[in-house]
Every structure is written in C-alpha cells, then in structure tokens.
C-alpha cells in the first residue's frame, strides 16, 4: 500500500476514504461539522466511568474530545471513536513520523510505545489509549540530541527507503528500555514483527548491539 502514501504525505489513506468515495476530511469541510459532543468533552484522560451495574455512558459515533499524552505533552484531539491512534497522530496532531503501511497489524511500520510497550497504532483506537503515555518517533530525540538508537542507525547505515524505520527504531528503543543489554536473539525477536522490504535486518542488529554497548554514535 506504500504507493498510496508517498514519503512526506501528511495524510493516511487508511480509513479517510469512505465507501461512497468522499474523504472524511472533504465531508467535514463541505458539511461544516466539527461537533465535539458534550458527552465527548467528558472523554478525557482517565475517562470517568459510571460505577455499579447500570449501563455505562456511551460516546460517539460523532467526534469526541480526547486528551492524549503524547511524547510528554498532553494533547487534545477531536476524533470519532473509530479513529485509530495512527490516524489521530498523523491527521490530527501532524506527527507524520509514524507510518501506516498495511493498516492491519501485519507489518509493524506504525509501531509506537504505549508506556514502554510497543504496539501497532493502526490497530489501537485513539479512544482506547486512556492515560497511557504514547511515544512516537518524534519523541525519542531531545532537540538535536538523537536517541542512541537513532544515532546508531545512522552510524551503521541501518535503513534504506526508510518506510519501516520509524517502527523499527521504536521497537529497538522499547527493547533497550526493557532490556538494556539484549542478546542478538533478543534483538531478532524484538524486530521479528517489523517488515523491512529493503532487508536491512543485519545492520539493524549491528546498530542495536552497538547502542546497547554505548557505541551508537
């Protein structure tokens, strides 16, 4: 599906296109609707939930105001419940470093961390993130100071076309968070879900081992 999504595009093709051919964006423009519901406005971090046995309150299917903790900041997005985290990041917050390729959890290009756990942002609904901390590729560097994994990827030339790289780097950074001295097999397992059609795996392995030994840059 990468041909539908050229590098630098700020729009995910995944579910924008509705079946009748209009995009969600053009529909909203033409209809002039951006209606965060009143109930939606309640859908903040740490979503309040009714106690006891009564039916819990429903939000949607229209837009809901959500607070997401992204890269250390609290950000507000207005999205429908069907919006994936990948779409919210790319289309609402313009954090287009996260790439959507298969949109089915099969390629891991869209990997982000929820707290320290790598997940597919294409198969996570934004409304389901709650108070977990989202870390995207944009959140790894501190200003000009690259994350050791990013520096090691450059040093070891661990990328070619770059489309899998955001997800690959997040998987590797997450591995080092949980396991600072991984074995080669640990690295292979950590990136086993990240498909790279340029086949940069050996260099990725070198980069992660180097970064874990403090030799990234």
């Amino acid at each position: 599906m990468s041909e539908k999504l050229p590098p630098g595009s700020d729009s995910s093709p995944s579910q924008d296109k509705q079946k009748h051919g209009t995009t969600r964006r053009t529909f909203l423009k033409s209809a002039g609707i951006v209606s965060a519901s009143v109930a939606g406005a309640e859908m903040l971090t740490g979503v309040p939930r009714a106690e006891g046995q009564e039916q819990a309150g429903a939000v949607g299917p229209g837009k809901v105001a959500l607070k997401l903790r992204v890269n250390g900041e609290v950000r507000t997005v207005n999205v429908e419940p069907r919006t994936t985290l990948a779409e919210a990041l790319r289309d609402e917050l313009h954090l287009t470093g996260t790439k959507v390729v298969c949109d089915r959890g099969s390629c891991s290009a869209c990997t982000v961390m929820l707290d320290k756990t790598p997940v597919c942002s294409c198969m996570t609904l934004a409304v389901d993130v709650g108070d977990r901390n989202v870390t995207t590729i944009e959140g790894l560097a501190h200003g000009e100071d690259l994350h050791p994994i990013q520096a090691a990827f450059i040093e070891h030339d661990a990328l070619q076309c770059g489309f899998c790289t955001s997800g690959m780097v997040i998987s590797c950074a997450s591995l080092l968070e949980r396991n600072p001295k991984p074995s080669a097999d640990d690295v292979r397992t950590a990136i086993s879900g990240n498909i790279c059609r340029c086949a940069t795996y050996p260099r990725v392995l070198e980069a992660v081992v180097a970064a874990s030994q403090g030799k990234g840059a």
Binding site: Q53, A56, V59, E80, P81, T124, D128
Partner: peptide, 29 residues
Amino acid sequence: MNRFDWVNANSVDQALASVTDESSFKAGG
C-alpha cells in the same frame, strides 16, 4: 470502518448491561 458508539465498561456487570444486539465486546480489539 463503520461508525459506532463507544462504552467504557468498569465491571463485568456493566459490560453485560451495556451490550445490545448490534454491539461487540472489545478486549484487545
């Protein structure tokens, strides 16, 4: 993907009370 409304259930009882014929429970999703 179709549009849907969303309920965060706090307990099993609440989940069972919130589900309708046209609903799905969602775990990992």
